[in-house]
Design a protein around this nucleic acid. Sequence first.
DNA 1: ACGCTTTCGCTACGAGTCGTAGCGTAATGC
DNA 2: GCATTACGCTACGACTCGTAGCGAAAGCGT
Lengths: 206, 206
Amino acid sequence: MQSRSPAAARPGRPRSAAADAAILAATREALVELGWSKLTLGDVATRAGVAKTTLYRRWSGKNELVVDAVAELFDELCLPDRGSLAADIEGVVLQFAAILARPEARSGLMAVVTEATRDDALRARIRASIVDRQKGLVLEGRSRAQQRGELPPEADPEESARTVDLIFDMVAGAVVHRTLVSGRPADEEWVRGFTHILLRGLTAPS
Amino acid sequence: MQSRSPAAARPGRPRSAAADAAILAATREALVELGWSKLTLGDVATRAGVAKTTLYRRWSGKNELVVDAVAELFDELCLPDRGSLAADIEGVVLQFAAILARPEARSGLMAVVTEATRDDALRARIRASIVDRQKGLVLEGRSRAQQRGELPPEADPEESARTVDLIFDMVAGAVVHRTLVSGRPADEEWVRGFTHILLRGLTAPS
DNA sequence: ACGCTTTCGCTACGAGTCGTAGCGTAATGC
DNA sequence: GCATTACGCTACGACTCGTAGCGAAAGCGT
């Protein structure tokens, strides 16, 4: 029960880390050029310079591969301290919008979310590698705002968790809908208006 | 230049309206059982009791067919007058959430939006048959609220249009994200919390 | 009743993708 | 050297795609 680490020193030839990187990069490239529906694993393998069988040895299918390829795009997401809650929100929303403006994120992210409606394992994979990271930003931003005194400290932890979930759905949902459904850019002007409404909704006296 | 109506009295055998209904119903049924990716036009044709060629004569492909099939789900969407802006919003959001709770809407709607990221004609079709109808509800609700005095009348029409777009992205985006990404139901409790924040953001003094 | 026109159901087809199996070779640890 | 695993390559059956061709059916005008 000891060696269960993922990269345990197993005997035999190790998997090429370069191949992993090449495959994920090729997947994003194919997403840009072909989109989700016309992306084939054979094509990705050719672009990456690996055999198709190598691809199937590491990923069980198109869904899992694209999740990993898209997840790397969210690595750059962080929460810079801009001094006020409003500025922090605007900053992170603009970062999120910049990622969603990239074509590989647009087609890839939406597609895997679609597939996840019928695949619980895939949904868990998305949550672990993408969604939870975003939610962490919401938690961090609220913690900062409470330290600044911009938000009251939470009393009920359960109520607090519900509020975080709600804020997260509102932020991510609005940006995604603006970018992908309305088809218009989430630029600074839009983000300012959105932040304005959200912030007043959170802080105004009832 | 006279007879340009879509169903002009053309000579020859008319298209079967019953076949249209059967095909769209079969498409929704297949969406429930198979989901988007495993749905094939041949299977839909078999379920509907029509030939595959008939399907291709009326729709150019899977995307357009599913848009029409899903669009019918939104026919029931309306804005009941509940007496206050808060109640109106809660009512229509709950209706929207009820539609998104159906599996054929979950997999179908998200899938066509995904495909629309690379297909402008498809995006226009979605906007015409689904999105614009929802946006109309936002306009109607705001108009009512202004008559009641719950919202101030708009001065700048351009600013007004921007606000409507923003509200629409926030409402639809939050419900979609809650339902499809977070994977939790947009039940009454959640809708109350959401409406509370949105409404305070819209009406609280700055 | 008769043609004209369009739709419909059916069959068949080449093209493309899928996911897997088999084989020989390359890379690592003992 | 030897065991073990990863890799590249080829080939395969099964499936879906979108289209073409055909004869039959259903309307409309004369």
